[in-house]
Each structure stands twice: as structure tokens, then as C-alpha cells.
Design a protein around this nucleic acid. Sequence first.
DNA 1: GTCTATATCGGGATAGAC
DNA 2: GTCTATCCCGATATAGAC
Lengths: 186, 186
Amino acid sequence: MSEAPSGTDTRARIQDVALELFTEHGYEKTSLREIADRLGVTKAALYYHFKSKEEIVQTLIEERTAVLEDLWSWIATQPRSAGTRREFIRRYAAELHRGRYHMQVMHLIERNPTLGQNISGVERMRGRLAELMALLSPPDASPQRRLKGSLGLIAIHASSVVLRDLDLTDEERLAAALDVALELVD
Amino acid sequence: MSEAPSGTDTRARIQDVALELFTEHGYEKTSLREIADRLGVTKAALYYHFKSKEEIVQTLIEERTAVLEDLWSWIATQPRSAGTRREFIRRYAAELHRGRYHMQVMHLIERNPTLGQNISGVERMRGRLAELMALLSPPDASPQRRLKGSLGLIAIHASSVVLRDLDLTDEERLAAALDVALELVD
DNA sequence: GTCTATATCGGGATAGAC
DNA sequence: GTCTATCCCGATATAGAC
């Protein structure tokens, strides 16, 4: 699933490069020529693997949506307790270790307002994310508690940017974010 | 400064509409034709007031950067105490009441990765924002504390999105965010 | 599976009249 | 201060050869 058999799987290599450029320069600003150039192929080659630019980003997003929906299925069956929320945060963080570009895709959809108006699947993902955030506080929580719960997830996403200048490894950054997130959902 | 003499000041009306569309659909995706249409003028008319699309967004950003720099000048002269941080958060929140589109511009720069590569002034703003976030925790703080301090500011920015479905007024939302932010920088 | 060549479109920007 | 008309470019996407 997230193996990247770096030899022949051009399709996966396209996704890799596209995601990197989309997150770096934005979806709209990234041209297919740029992607093709970096791969050492031509634009037309991309169209053999994907029928449009949209489809490239769609496949990326659908893979990550599946992850969110798995997490949602799990949490929906659990009691709405602090213990559940803490366990959720741990599972979410673990996912960041496994799927190699979960975080990047999250940044992509957070930072590209244009995705979602046209691109199917993005709205569903944003919806799932909102639902998960709502579940990170007790059912009858005050707005303050609601916000803190949501900030638990946001902390994890933001840590890589906010702690960038702090000379930590990715693991250390994630560990710190995990501490903060666990506290926020508690 | 943020008056909008709604009669004749076309320049301000262009900024208004542009900001709204930029934040809604993204900077790249918004065309000058769209802006002009909504104002009931033509593209060429925009070029009388601004020499380029970039200049429109630049003026927006420069006004908000000035605000951040004022806040920075103030906090730099204060002791790095919890009291200072709390007062900073209060001043920041107050600014959201005054300047009518401070928040929108913040969302704009957060969510458009493409701004900043080319557009002068954005990097300076991002830098100021990072510096301010760093000052929201003690000088020798752990990564955890650093992250929590930064989340104080982020809480304010995120509240409008995160608490959207909660049927609160903007004031109530901001008040809740303020509570959480004050706690986070403490 | 990748190439060259091309069709087509929409965007930013300018010239010059009113 | 706003208009019409136009230029120019880069982007997505397709056709068809190899």
C-alpha cells in the first residue's frame, strides 16, 4: 500500500513527485510539465497513468480518507471517554509513522482552498476530519473544551511547522506533539 | 485606516472583493475578471488602481504586517513573563475586533503556499508571525511548552473554522478562543 | 509506456479611445 | 476613472507515431 517499489512503478512515482510539488508550491501553481520534468518524462506520459491532473490529487486524497474513515469507524464504537480520546490520538500519531505521506496530504487539503470546490472526495475528507475533531471532547462540552479537543489534532499537524527551527528529529517533534495533544483531549 | 468610505473609494472596494475571493477560492484560482465582474467594472479598470494582481495582495498583506510589527515592537520591550504573554493575546484579540479583515488575511497567507515564493512582504510577515509564536513561551521552554504557546495564537485563528457548526456569534467564538489561548500561554 | 506535435482555452497585462 | 480590443503566454488535454 505505501511501499513504493522504486523500480518500475511509475504511477507511484508520479504520485510522490506530484504530492511534493503540490504541497510545496500549491496545487494550482504546479504544472504537469514540472511534474513530468522532475521524473524525466513528458506531460503526455502522465496521461497514460492518470486521465487528468485532478485524478492525481484525487487518488492521493482517497487513500488518506480511507485511513480517516477507519479511525472514525473505530472511535464511533467506543465510549466517549477521555481514555478513548487519548487512544485515538495515539492511533493517529502511529498512522503518521506508517503511511509515509499522511501528513503531507493533510497539509495539502488544509492549505489549498481550491481543492474541494471541484475535486470530489475532498469534501468528504474535510467532513470526516471535522467529525473526528468534534469527537475529541465530551458530548456536552463547552466551546472551550471543543476547541481544545480539536487543537489536539491540530497540534500534531502544526508541530512540524511550529517546531521547525528547534533542531529536533521528526520523532522528537512528534513525541512532543503527542504529549501536548494528549493533554488537550484530556 | 479600516474605514471603507463605501461611496467612492474604488480602491478599497477592490481590496474588499479581492480578499473575499482570494480567501474563498484561493489566490491562484481567482481571476481578475471575477473581481472586476463582481464590482461591475472591467479588468482594465483594476489596472488603473493596481499595477498587477500581485500588488493587490501585497497591499493587503503589508497593512497586516504593520499590525504584527507593532505588536512585536511592544512585546520585545516587555519581560518574558506569563503576564506579558497573556496581555499579548488580549491585544491580538482586540486587533481582530478593530481591523476588519485581519483574520481573513491571516487565513489567506496560511492557506496559500504560493504566496511568499514570489510575493515580496509575505516572507517578512511569516517571519514576524513565527517570532511572535516563539515569544509565547518562556525563553528556555521545552518543545512541549513552545508548541503550546504557538497553539495559543493558532487557537484564535482556528476558532472560526473549528467552532463553525456550534451556532455561536463571532463574539462568543472569539471569547471562547481567548479563554483557551490564555490558558495555553500560561 | 513514452514520445512529438498540436488544439484549445483562459489568464494577466497593455494600448489607446472616451 | 473606466471602457473596448488585443497581445502574449502558459496550462490542460488530445492525436497519433514509435
